[in-house]
């Protein structure tokens, strides 16, 4: 595993190089399956899985056609989860997400027809094209993990994982998500174009749809919940918590950002870093884990005061890492 954060914190997975007794083979198998279909995107894939293991939701901001849908689909498939896709549009209503009660003439009563959100993996596509009303229906469901319709509260399935995509906010016809709602996403990642070698393999290789259809689940949903619980038990030493605090304190004091990291953001950072450590087969978090996931955690939480830096989330995260010594 390459921990070299100085080189822009791209951490490539090289399985088996440093055999670790804690390593969980099923996680390696899951990552290998996804990497076989989505080529050259090792880091975003790992982050997505870490996000899922940390019981968080994922926001992907990218151009259409770089594989967001495929990623969601593959994740659901290898983890043995149900999958639904919701395409957000500007005329969408909350009922289109949550579901609606329809009067059944035969029984003389209303019957609730659950919406597409009643599934384990939801792909909320182009979330910022919907009106705030529709957005908030989804975001409330994400936060509460339950849905209230017609006065009745219905629990959403477990595990429940939302992958939302949004177009870059500079595109027209978008309703940008407010900060408080962005905060409900544990991570924000970008997929980006594949590198030429990966793209060539994609173009020359087999049909992706077929590959997805051929995938078999590696674990059961029950096992996934167990793994999520294991993530919570990954040890974060006092020295590491000091580091998280120092990072947060730095963001609060530095004039580069309008506001610093909130305590909730620190919790998010720690949660993803735990999942990242587990993916690496460790029972404890290292500063490297924190640094590896930092960009995804801060990208949608810290607003730079300087407009120039807004588009370079990677450079911002690198600068933050290099400014804060390990305690």
């Amino acid at each position: 595993m390459n921990y070299n954060v100085a080189q822009k914190h791209i951490i490539h997975q090289r399985p088996g190089k440093t055999p670790n007794p804690m390593r969980l083979p099923e996680l390696d198998a899951i990552l290998a399956d996804i990497n076989r279909i989505i080529l050259g995107k090792d880091r975003p894939i790992r982050l997505s899985l870490a996000c899922l293991l940390a019981r968080g939701h994922l926001l992907i901001e990218d151009l259409p056609g770089v594989g967001k849908t495929t990623l969601a689909h593959v994740l659901a498939r290898v983890l043995g989860l149900d999958f639904q896709r919701i395409q957000f549009t500007s005329d969408m209503l909350p009922a289109d997400i949550i579901g609606v009660s329809i009067f059944d003439r035969e029984s003389g009563a209303f019957h609730f027809h659950p919406g597409p959100i009643f599934t384990q993996v939801v792909l909320a596509d182009e979330i910022n094209r919907a009106t705030p009303k529709a957005q908030s229906a989804l975001l409330e469901a994400m936060e509460e993990r339950q849905v209230t319709a017609e006065g009745k509260t219905r629990a959403l399935p477990e595990p429940f994982f939302v992958i939302a995509t949004q177009n870059p906010t500079y595109q027209i016809g978008t309703f940008p998500l407010p900060e408080s709602q962005l905060d409900r996403f544990l991570l924000k990642i970008e997929l980006g174009y594949p590198d030429p070698a990966a793209e060539r393999e994609l173009l020359a290789g087999a049909d992706r749809r077929q590959l997805v259809a051929d995938l078999v689940p590696r674990i059961t949903p029950q096992r996934l919940i167990e793994l999520q619980n294991t993530v919570r038990a990954v040890h974060a030493s006092p020295a590491l918590i000091d580091y998280v605090q120092t990072l947060a304190a730095y963001t609060r004091a530095a004039p580069r950002w309008q506001e610093g990291l909130s305590p909730r953001a620190c919790l998010a950072l720690l949660a993803v870093a735990r999942a990242w450590a587990l993916l690496d087969g460790r029972d404890h978090v290292l500063p490297e884990d924190v640094q590896a996931v930092l960009q995804g955690v801060i990208a949608h939480r810290l607003r730079p005061t300087d407009d120039d830096a807004r588009s370079h989330a990677e450079a911002v995260a690198a600068a933050l890492i290099e400014a804060v010594p390990l305690p």
Binding site: Y3, V5, A6
Partner: peptide
């Protein structure tokens, strides 16, 4: 060793 560098990252470098 850079003061912000994690131990394993430094070891690898």
């Amino acid at each position: 060793w850079q003061p912000w560098e994690g131990p394993l990252a430094f070891a690898e470098r």
